[in-house]
Design a protein around this nucleic acid. Structure first.
Ligand code: SF4
Ligand code: SF4
Lengths: 143, 143
DNA sequence: ACTAATAAGACCTTATTTGTCATATTATTA
DNA sequence: TAATAATATGACAAATAAGGTCTTATTAGT
């Protein structure tokens, strides 16, 4: 499997925060309960998301986390890469010149293209869309 | 990184076999030397490729491995999946219904689309193309 | 029989992921 | 200032997977 569990948790948490506490503050522990994510693990993920500039965290009473920017300005690629680091199909895509075979390697370009297609799809998916769609699906499912 | 080293070795080995021993038989140990792949590890990879129906292996003196079908009928996705198993962006893509949240999950479709784009690119890349391109690049580089 | 090759599987080492625990820090409120 | 409610941080542990080695069996040609 390509994505780590942490990345999946991160996306679900971001959607939860965007959906439930629209513009407001969410409490990590409650997100964990709602989304059925191991609590302490989620705090780690939230920390990374905060460090990565996707969330703002405030400590102390009445603290919590909120989106650092509008949901429309956050996309799936950003969330995934904040948790996983750069998504690379193969080593050589980190930096040209790393692999000694590169100049005669017929695969390099194919990896590159495949990776670009993948990332493009994730990039075109905004958190705003996901949150909206989540609401739709939930109301359809319960109604 | 998404691809395991084994998958990269597998692709390079397949190109080597397709290029050097066109239609004929290649010896695993020599492939390993040429491609700078740990020998014993490559035998494992070759075994998996043979089990997966991409290579034919013949034991005994004057044995070796050869492509089980024409290089044009082998594509990059097949090679990668023979080594890695199915390439899945997320757990839930293995079998619909596995994740209890699926019916209200807004992400499922996005994972699916991203995965399809990735696999499509690999599918469109045949071993014949890779072998051809490899020859081109090598002669260009040495000439 | 001898030799050259793959097949198979046990095994080991290391790295990563997933997760827990304990403790520190910060901000609010009374 | 003390109590409380929240995140921050870092050490740690367990589970899993990746990368690689070693040994032995099997097969086929000479
Ligand atoms: S051999 Fe080609 S695909 Fe493999 S690491 Fe080097 S450049 Fe990349
Ligand atoms: S929550 Fe959605 S994306 Fe995550 S495993 Fe379930 S269906 Fe898949």
């Amino acid at each position: 499997m390509i994505l780590s569990r942490g990345a999946g948790y991160a996306v679900r948490a971001m959607i939860d925060i965007a959906t439930v506490a629209n513009g407001g503050v969410a409490i990590t522990r409650e997100v964990a309960t709602r989304q059925d994510i191991p609590q302490v693990f989620l705090t780690k993920i939230v920390q990374r998301l905060a460090k990565g500039g996707l969330l703002e965290a405030h400590r102390g009473a009445y603290g919590g986390v909120r989106l650092a920017r509008p949901a429309a300005d956050i996309n799936l690629r950003q969330i995934v890469e904040t948790i996983e680091g750069p998504v690379l199909l193969n080593d050589c895509l980190i930096q040209p010149g790393k692999c000694p075979r590169e100049s005669t390697c017929p695969i390099y370009d194919v990896w590159l293209e495949a990776e670009e297609k993948l990332l493009e799809t994730l990039e075109n998916c905004s958190l705003a869309y996901l949150a909206e769609r989540s609401k739709e699906l939930c109301s359809k499912h319960s109604g």
